[in-house]
Design a protein around this nucleic acid. Structure first.
Length: 567
RNA sequence: CGGGGCGUGGCUCAGCUUGGUAGAGCACCUGGCUUGGGACCAGGGGGUCGCAGGUUCGAAUCCUGCCGCUCCGACCA
């Protein structure tokens, strides 16, 4: 490709709307342009990167015996109504009507579509297992699209669905996909971690997320430096903490004027937050729920949501709290509370002589003891893990990090096959639901995550495997015929040898061409200048390390191949 | 959903308070000059000032409504 012809208009300044580095650099490098909030055009350089990621994905999916197909983006409402997700999905689903006023949506995912397809064609255990995937645009009308391609409303996803005859088969498919994902993200040159995760809206249990480690990541994860445990904080389980045993004192009410926060209460009473109970009131679609955790702990709303089995959950406002409980936030407590759902964290049950709100403004209870003074509807782990909490596997302290979720593998079991009656006949002629899994990779997000992890002050630093081109050839003086001619020869030589090269033939000063090369992030840059002409040596600079190599002008091809293989 | 900020040429922004013929830098076109890290000189093209109303002799500027973009928040009691 000649740079004079390449449609990659670079920007010297960063557009004001871009917050994260991947977004900034993709705009500046002429890779993407915004069409609407969370909706982008992929320009030629970006598309080349996407195709490379897709091809790696294809190779690894096919290597596990999967087959690619392509399903419609426009999906009829009926199949979504059959699983109940037409309503569950809510405002995140792009909905539309056809001329006959029939409801459709733009596919946010394809469990309904694929299951409906497979149920009509697969009847026998002999046809299983089956693994089908596609790579296409997905549509989710995000509450808050942001960070460029990181959280778009239209994005490219690889989604694979596995159909097995039993749990054993599913476990095998799941393991195969887990392996394939590990290979894929390694091949893309990413530093990532597979973490245990929560099922979320897609449903099912048993799931891992593949997280690219980056400070700009939206997800918080914990990992254990001592064993191999790693999880999304939403998922990380915690055991009850045992507190030193004490004599049970008599319950008493104390005045605590103006102490609306745990911190204020502990300061006033001179006690540790670990001796208090924090009481939170939530509004859910299953009604009002009260949650209890130790004062220095935080509620994991995902865990709570799973226990309540609700779709929406948010902290109740002051008005709701007053109406329900006759007190204000800050002075709520579990003793004598009248509420249908009182959920206590396991550690709360181990507290002795604790302090909590007395359900009267400016009053707290002292010497509250769980089993004696109140009885929760449910006692469960509803606590959010924090740095230095004990690892669920080895009890040593965990660390926290941030990650970008680029892939997720799910065990769906029979959730969709039962809802959509996708069954097969087993060896004994008995009808059984297929056992399903689903496996997604955010292809466009992977591109953005790669940039988040591979950039410097000058621009992008592509890993060779997914770089838009491998090499850029920059002649220093466009008016110098010898330089231009040699550059062209090198360009032709590399191109015919299967090395993807661009030749910057523009009539620009060298600085402009160097800056653009660094911004776009070609792994190698060949500079053709007076030295090249006079001394017959080619200068090759490695984008990532800045190392410079000199190769003989008559024998550089193998050297460059070796260099590309090594970096 | 709530709150803030912003909307002026492709990009970054000034002008708005105090209404009076729309500006700069970058980018783009032409010519010259230059060529090892975003040169310089001269000339040039390009903007219904987000949209719709209103006030006014006159609106980018004041008022109202809407739209879009963006950030933050959505209460840890």
């Amino acid at each position: 490709m000649l740079v004079s012809q390449l449609y990659a208009p670079t920007l010297r300044e960063t557009p004001a709307e871009a917050e994260v580095v991947s977004h900034q650099l993709m705009l500046r490098a002429g890779m993407i342009r915004k069409a609407a909030g969370g909706v982008y055009t992929y320009m030629p350089l970006a598309l080349r990167v996407l195709r490379k990621i897709e091809n790696i994905v294809r190779q690894e999916m096919d290597a596990k015996g999967s087959q690619e197909l392509l399903m419609p983006i426009i999906q009829p409402a009926e199949m979504w109504q059959e699983t109940g997700r037409w309503n569950v999905y809510g405002d995140e689903m792009f909905r539309l009507k056809d001329r006959h006023n029939r409801d459709f949506c733009l596919g946010p995912t394809h469990e309904e579509m694929i299951t409906t397809l497979v149920r009509s064609d697969v009847r026998s255990y002999r046809q299983l297992p089956l693994k089908l995937y596609q790579i296409q645009n997905k549509y989710r009308d995000e509450r808050r699209p942001r960070f460029g391609l990181m959280r778009g409303r239209e994005f490219i996803m690889k989604d694979l669905y596995s159909f097995d005859k039993d749990e054993e088969g599913l476990a095998k498919s799941y393991d195969q996909m887990y392996e394939a994902y590990t290979t894929i993200f390694n091949r893309c040159g990413l530093t990532f971690r597979a973490v245990e995760a929560d099922g979320g809206a897609i449903g099912g249990s048993g799931t891992h997320e593949f997280m690219v480690i980056a400070d700009s990541g939206e997800a918080a994860i914990v990992y254990c430096p001592s064993c191999d445990y790693a999880a999304n904080v939403e998922k990380a389980e915690l055991k009850a903490i045992l507190m030193p045993e004490e004599e049970l004192e008599n319950l008493s009410v104390i005045d605590t004027p103006g102490t609306k926060s745990i911190e204020a209460v502990t300061n006033l009473l001179g006690i540790s937050a670990a001796k208090t109970i924090k009481t939170l009131v939530y509004n859910t679609d299953k009604g009002v729920v009260v949650a209890l955790v130790r004062g220095d702990h935080e509620v994991n709303e995902i865990k709570l949501q799973n226990i309540v089995d609700c779709l929406t959950i948010e902290l109740a406002d002051e008005k709701t709290v007053s109406e329900m409980l006759g007190s204000t936030p800050g002075f709520i407590g579990p003793v004598g509370i009248k509420i249908p759902m009182l959920i206590a964290d396991t550690t709360v049950m181990n507290l002795y002589n604790a302090v909590c709100g007395a359900n009267t403004p400016d009053k707290h209870y002292r010497n509250v003891n769980a089993k004696r003074d109140f009885s929760p509807t449910v006692v469960a782990d509803i606590r959010l893990i924090q740095e230095n909490d004990p690892c669920p596997h080895c009890d040593l302290p965990v660390k926290t990090a941030r990650g970008i979720e680029v892939g997720q593998v799910f065990k769906l079991h029979t959730k969709y096959s039962k809802a959509l009656k996708a069954t097969y006949l087993d060896e004994n002629g008995r009808e059984k639901p297929m056992v399903m899994g689903c496996y997604g990779i955010g292809v466009s997000r992977t591109m953005a995550a790669t940039i988040e992890q591979n950039n410097d002050e000058y621009g992008i630093v592509w890993p060779v495997a997914i770089a838009p081109y491998h090499v850029v050839i920059v002649p220093v003086s466009p008016k110098d015929e010898a330089q231009m001619s040699l550059s062209n020869t090198i360009y032709k030589t590399l191109t015919t040898s299967g090395i993807e090269a661009v030749f910057d033939d523009r009539n620009e000063r060298p600085g402009v061409k160097f800056k653009d090369a660094d911004l776009i992030g070609y792994p190698l840059k060949i500079t053709v200048g007076p030295k090249t002409i006079n001394e017959n040596i080619i200068e090759v600079k490695v984008r990532r390390t800045g190392e410079i190599f000199y190769f003989d002008v008559n024998n550089y091809l193998e050297e460059i191949k070796a260099l590309l293989a090594r970096i």
